[in-house]
């Protein structure tokens, strides 16, 4: 199961790198969104995907899931949510001020 998840995470990362390197403002923001998804999946996968009893309730069972990564991933999701909403607002303002969403035109020149 971990192998399948690793491949999936690899694909998600590849997509997000592709999006991050594109010239469109919205695509770049979507790239940050997908990369955070990839990271969250990785965080869950890295602690081994267990099938077994819920944690803490049945102490003494053989297989139980590790609760810590789930707490971590919850925190990370909330942070990613906040950052993404901030980025969307900022991207929108940038678009309004500059009248373009092409990052090539947002490069800025050396002599300003």
């Amino acid at each position: 199961m971990e192998i399948v998840m690793s491949i999936v995470i690899g694909i998600v990362f590849a997509i997000s790198v592709y999006l991050l390197l594109s010239r469109n403002l919205i695509r770049v923001i979507l790239g940050t969104l997908t990369i955070s998804h990839g990271v969250h999946l990785l965080l869950i996968t890295m602690s081994e995907l267990q099938r077994g009893a819920p944690p803490l309730l049945n102490i003494g069972e053989e297989n139980f899931t590790d609760p810590l990564p789930q707490a971590l991933v919850l925190t990370a999701i909330v942070i990613a949510f906040g950052v993404t909403s901030m980025l969307l607002v900022m991207g929108y303002r940038t678009y309004k001020e500059h009248n373009t969403e092409d990052l090539d035109q947002l490069r800025g020149s050396a002599d300003e």
Binding site: T32, V83, G108
Partner: peptide, 14 residues
């Protein structure tokens, strides 16, 4: 500010 900060934010998010 908007133009350059956008890059700053993207770098940091990554």
């Amino acid at each position: 500010q908007l133009r350059e900060s956008f890059k700053y934010v993207i770098i940091n998010v990554f």
